[in-house]
C-alpha cells in the first residue's frame, strides 16, 4: 500500500498505481486472491517477511483480467446462480420459523459456509480451463451446504440436476488440488465426493423412478 501511494517505474518515473482488489485485509472477503510467487493465495495474508524476494505478483489465470491484478470473477457468481445456492424463503406471507438443525450438522455446515468465493480452488484445478466448462469446487461445495440446510433442502433435486449437466460435477478429475489451495480449509474434496454420492442416488432415482 505504501508503494501504491507513490508508484514509480523501474527507472524512477512516476506512473499509475497497480490495480488490485481488496477490502477486508483479514481473509474473509475473498477479493485479493492472486498468484504470489506462483502460488494461488490471498494476498492479504501473504506476509512479506515470509516470502522469497523479489516477490512476483500475477493475476489469477482462470478469470478474465480487468486490469493489472484485478480479475473478473463473475463466472463464479453465474455458477452459484446455476446451482441455486440460496435458501428459498421469498413469499407473500410469513412462513414461520424453519425446522431445527442438529448441532453436529450446524457445525459442519458452518465450515462449508466459510467459502469466500476467492477462486483459488478454480485457479489450481487442472479441469478448470479454456477447453472445459467445469464450474470448479466452490459452487459444488455450496450445493453440499444448501442441500444440508433443512429449508434449503427443498431445492435439493434441482441443485443436483444442475450439477449433473455439462460443466458440472462429473467434469471433476479428482486431482484434489482444490482442498489444498482453499484459504478457509473447507473440506472441498469431501463435498465433491458427497455430491458424487448424491447424484448417483439421484440419477438412479430418475432412471428407475420416472
Amino acid at each position: 500500500m505504501e508503494v501504491a501511494k507513490d508508484p514509480k517505474t523501474r527507472d524512477g518515473r512516476r506512473t499509475s498505481p497497480v490495480v488490485y482488489d481488496r477490502a477486508c485485509l483479514e481473509e474473509v472477503c475473498g477479493s485479493c486472491a492472486m498468484r504470489v510467487n506462483g502460488v494461488a493465495r490471498m494476498a492479504c495474508t501473504a506476509l512479506i517477511d515470509s516470502l522469497a524476494q523479489p516477490v512476483k505478483l500475477e493475476p489469477l489465470a482462470k478469470f478474465p483480467v480487468v486490469r493489472d491484478l484485478s480479475v473478473d470473477r463473475s463466472s463464479m457468481f453465474e455458477s452459484l446462480k446455476r446451482v441455486k445456492a440460496w435458501v428459498p424463503i421469498d413469499g407473500t406471507y410469513d412462513l414461520g420459523p424453519g425446522p431445527r438443525m442438529a448441532e453436529s450438522e450446524r457445525a459442519y455446515a458452518y465450515e462449508l459456509s466459510k467459502c469466500i468465493t476467492c477462486g483459488n480452488c478454480l485457479e489450481v484445478c487442472p479441469q478448470v480451463n479454456d477447453r472445459s466448462s467445469f464450474m470448479g469446487a466452490a459452487p459444488i461445495s455450496q450445493v453440499a451446504l444448501f442441500n444440508r440446510h433443512p429449508t434449503g433442502r427443498m431445492l435439493a433435486a434441482e441443485r443436483l440436476d444442475a450439477l449433473m449437466g455439462e460443466g458440472g460435477l462429473d467434469e471433476c478429475g479428482n486431482a484434489q488440488n482444490c482442498v489444498r489451495a482453499c484459504p478457509k480449509s473447507i473440506p472441498l474434496t469431501t463435498s465433491i465426493a458427497e455430491m458424487f454420492r448424491a447424484t448417483t442416488a439421484h440419477g438412479f432415482r430418475k432412471l428407475f423412478g420416472s
Binding site: G38, V39, V124, P126, Q127, N129, D130, R131, S132, F134, E171, G173, N174, A175, Q176, N177, R180, A181
Partner: peptide, 22 residues
C-alpha cells in the same frame, strides 16, 4: 483427456500426479 490442462509443475501433490498419470 482433451479437456484437461495438467499443472503438476506448479501443484506438486501426489494426487495431482496421479491425475496426470491416469
Amino acid at each position: 483427456t482433451g479437456t484437461a490442462r495438467p499443472n503438476v509443475t506448479s501443484n506438486r501433490y501426489v494426487r495431482n500426479w496421479m491425475y496426470f498419470l491416469q
